[in-house]
Amino acid sequence: MAYTLPPLPYAYEALEPYIDTQTMHLHHDKHHQTYVNNANATLDSLPVELQALSADTLLQNLDKVPENKLTAIKNNVGGHVNHTLFWELLKIGTELKGELKEAIKNDFGSIETFKEKFAAAATTRFGSGWAWLVLQNGKLTIVSTANQDSPLMGEKYAGVSGTPILALDVWEHAYYLKYQNRRADYINAFWNVVNWDKVAELYATAKK
């Protein structure tokens, strides 16, 4: 089951001025496409039963992946899954409200504290990686992962676990054209493009 690059659910310029058009073209068309290509090349060499799994499910079953293919699967299937989710989590003009807002206030004390802790996780991730809001044992928690690791991989392979609710890509390719070395400015801009409707949908699904 070959993976394909999903189209963006909006125009490349839709996130201006917070995420620039050129970055979106390069990030989606080049970087994400490369993860898809490399994932498919590795997928062909896996046992048939693993090839039949969805990308998300494969990341949840890394114990079944041959050891000599593990790094390639983590990097490339992880990159495909992480980016596919990331595009869906971006949109201008949505509002944090309802059950999700109350859950964040309950688990972090306030919206401001949540944003501060999420920003800290994104800022302090050394090198390349991701910051995540996950649902873990019924509680919202902030974690970060290196490279293209995902909480879906679990503690053994990613050092963290949980169902992803919100994700922020802090690889330099996600922001360097516009923000250069100012990762903090990119993180601050991120709050203007969070698709809170999608985050709320993921939260509701994860709770079931």
Rank of each mutant, 00 (worst) to 15 (best):
Y157K: 04
E99P: 07
Y186A: 02
K156P: 07
Y18C: 12
T57V: 12
K105A: 10
A41K: 11
I111V: 15
N38R: 15
L140V: 05
S161R: 12
L166C: 15
E112Y: 09
W87E: 15
N40F: 10
V48K: 13
G127W: 02
L15V: 03
M153L: 05
R182V: 01
T123E: 13
D63M: 07
A39I: 05
Y35H: 15
K105S: 03
G138D: 07
P164G: 10
G154I: 14
G127Q: 09
A121M: 12
D169T: 04
A120W: 12
K117V: 12
A55V: 00
S161L: 05
Y3V: 02
H83Q: 14
H28E: 11
E102F: 12
S150Y: 08
D169H: 06
T113A: 10
E116L: 10
P6S: 13
H83F: 11
A41F: 09
T163S: 14
K117F: 10
L50M: 06
E116R: 08
L140N: 08
Y12D: 11
A2M: 11
A119Y: 06
L168R: 04
V143L: 08
N40C: 00
W196H: 09
L26R: 02
T21Q: 03
L5Q: 11
W132L: 00
S45D: 13
L53H: 02
D185C: 06
L202I: 02
A158R: 08
T145R: 09
V65R: 01
A158D: 04
G98C: 00
G93N: 00
K30F: 11
A204R: 14
A119Q: 02
E116C: 07
A2W: 08
V199D: 09
L152S: 01
P9K: 00
G79S: 06
L202M: 10
Q51N: 03
N137Q: 15
L59P: 00
N68C: 02
E88M: 15
F108M: 05
T123A: 01
T123C: 00
T23H: 00
A184D: 13
N40W: 03
F86C: 02
D185A: 03
Y179V: 07
E99H: 10
N61R: 15
S110W: 10
L202P: 05
N195S: 02
K97M: 05
T34R: 15
A131Y: 00
L133K: 04
G159K: 12
A119T: 14
D197V: 04
V81A: 12
T123S: 13
N37F: 01
F108Y: 06
R125Q: 12
K105C: 10
E95H: 06
L166W: 05
T57S: 06
A103H: 14
L46W: 07
T34W: 15
I187S: 01
N40V: 06
K101P: 03
K117I: 03
L26W: 13
D185E: 05
A174T: 08
A120E: 14
E16I: 03
Q60W: 06
F126H: 13
L168Q: 07
V48Y: 12
I104H: 02
I73N: 00
D107H: 15
E16W: 00
D44P: 05
P17T: 07
L70F: 11
D107W: 12
N195Y: 01
P9G: 06
Y179S: 05
L89E: 13
P164N: 10
L59E: 03
H27E: 11
A14T: 04
D20V: 11
Y35T: 09
V160R: 04
H27K: 05
T163A: 02
A39G: 09
S144V: 02
I19M: 14
